[in-house]
Amino acid sequence: MKKTVFVGAMAAATTLVAGAASATVLEEVQGRGELHCGVSTGVNGFSAPDSTGEWQGFDVAICRAVAAAVLGDPNKVKFTSTTGQTRFSALASGEIDILTRNTTWTMSRDADLKFSFAGVNYYDGQGFMVNKALGVSSAKELDGATVCIQTGTTTELNLADYFKANNMTYEPVPIETNAEAQQQYLAGACDVYTTDASGLAATRATFADPENHAVLPEIISKEPLGPLVAHGDDQWGDIVRWTMNALVAAEELGITSANIEELSKGTANPEINRILGASDDDLGAMIGLDKEWAKRAISAGGNYGEIFAANIGESTPIGLARGLNALWTQGGLQYSPPFR
């Protein structure tokens, strides 16, 4: 806890200095003509460089949408790979403008570390994976199991809570990285591997025999992952938040990368017209951008549903179902406030 307070205090001091001395983040980004975006050093489906060195993934797509909205070009992004240790100070010091790195929205990160979460682009939760030979169909039957778990993460604490609450015991096998976890689990060093459900699905997809492994139905924690920005510039926070909202609203309203040109000529739906800048209302001016900002953001990689399908959806090797991340109209949690 001491460390986070220290980082927070440093962040606050930096923000004061930065606020006094320099322009807004938007002016800075437009001045340098490039968005600085913090991503992970590699999480399957969320952010990873392909063989040409281009960053791809679900988190990366958010950065590209923001860059398209702010700079008019989804490729004007400099990706900085951050680790779990360096991510927050990189954001607090202004080295990066946005952090989209599978970061769970918690109160202490929001309030204590002085960051603003711009929304949730993926609702995740901690799950369990077991070998089917074990004959387990519910996490409640895992009493006495050996569990592979990454040390120093919230998953470790969640696991302890869950087993305690259900009056069960377990034997932890501490591991450092996901790659190591895969090896340990496949070698039989542990009966159960636990981490975020999206990670389990991605891991299972890489096995030689995925059909012999099952992800148990129980999700034992809430892990809302989303992009975040530093405190101190609400306009910048609004830009990122409403870019995300535009992607979700676009899916809800049926705006796709295929029909966006057609729709931006004007439709019968006034909200579509407002989002795409086809009406007289100038929503972009409220956040310091032009009328077509959202149109560019949606054109960059498609709407939320398209981005999901292209990077982590059921047609990809990771094969995640929409689940909680479906639109609210389809029983999920993705919900954009109105564009008005």
Binding site: S40, T41, G42, V43, N44, G45, S47, A48, P49, D50, S51, S81, T177, A179, Q182, Q183, A202, T203, A205, T206, F207, T316, P317, I318
Partner: peptide
């Protein structure tokens, strides 16, 4: 090597 493993094509190669 971590970043390469994060590509769906090569995830699981160690």
């Amino acid at each position: 090597s971590n970043a390469i493993r994060a590509d769906s094509n090569w995830n699981g190669i160690i």
